[in-house]
Structure formats: structure tokens, C-alpha cells
């Protein structure tokens, strides 16, 4: 139970970084931390105490195995996170070229 709670704290740390920081790179890093916490959560919900890794070798009996589905989901979310980070970092570089700064308070050509 406390593992889940700590995982949620990690989520909140990322959310704080994302909402309160002014530097664009810091905001993207906050996004990354949130992603880690969700990945962590996916692994946690598949975990069973004293289980074993869900990779099949020959002549092994299936007993008390960790739930494999969340791990497959976790792999997918890692890839999705990678492509989002790629795109957002690309945007950040272009914004730096156009505005000459990473500071979000100085990047205000639109009213919002």
C-alpha cells in the first residue's frame, strides 16, 4: 500500500515541476517524471510477493508468476513517452531559435 502511495507522490512531484517551473526544459523534465511514475505504477499493479519473472523457459511450471500484461503495457508507454519527448524537445529547440529564450514567461505572443 505504501508503495502505491509513494508512487503517487512521484506523480505529484512531476506535476509540480510541470506547473510551477518557468523553464521549458524543466517543464519537459516534469513530464518525464510523471511518465516514470505511471510506468512504475503499471509495474507495481502486476507485482505479486515472491513471484517470478513472466518469461517462459522450457520445463518450468507456471506458479505464482508476476502478471505479464502490465509489463507489456509498460513497454508501450515507454515508447509513447519517447516519441512525445522527441516532439516536445524539437518544439523547444525551435522556440529557442525564434524567441531566443527558454523562459516561458517571455514567450507570450498569444493571449491564451
Amino acid at each position: 500500500m505504501s508503495l502505491y502511495f509513494l508512487c503517487f507522490i512521484l506523480f505529484c512531484v512531476g506535476l509540480y515541476c510541470l506547473l510551477r517551473k518557468r523553464n521549458i526544459i524543466k517543464i519537459i523534465i516534469g513530464l518525464g517524471i510523471i511518465e516514470y511514475s505511471v510506468n512504475m505504477f503499471l509495474i507495481l499493479i502486476g507485482y505479486r510477493t515472491n513471484g517470478r519473472a513472466p518469461i517462459f523457459a522450457r520445463n518450468q511450471e507456471i506458479s505464482n508468476m508476476v502478471d505479464p500484461l502490465p509489463q507489456a503495457l509498460c513497454l508501450t508507454t515507454i515508447v509513447i513517452g519517447l516519441s512525445i519527448t522527441l516532439l516536445v524537445v524539437g518544439l523547444a529547440v525551435r522556440i529557442y531559435e525564434k524567441y531566443g529564450t527558454f523562459d516561458i514567461t517571455k514567450i507570450r505572443r498569444l493571449k491564451g
Binding site: Y47, G51, A53, I78
Partner: peptide, 19 residues
């Protein structure tokens, strides 16, 4: 490290290389 300890080696390796 935590993922290895929680018996998910594939996700762990992926996390290490990608992230």
C-alpha cells in the same frame, strides 16, 4: 533497479536504454 526487483526484466532493460 526497482523494476528488476519487481520481476520485470524486459521493462527494466527498455527503461534503461530508452529513458
Amino acid at each position: 533497479i526497482l523494476m528488476f526487483r519487481l520481476n520485470s526484466p524486459l521493462a527494466a532493460v527498455f527503461e534503461l536504454s530508452v529513458c
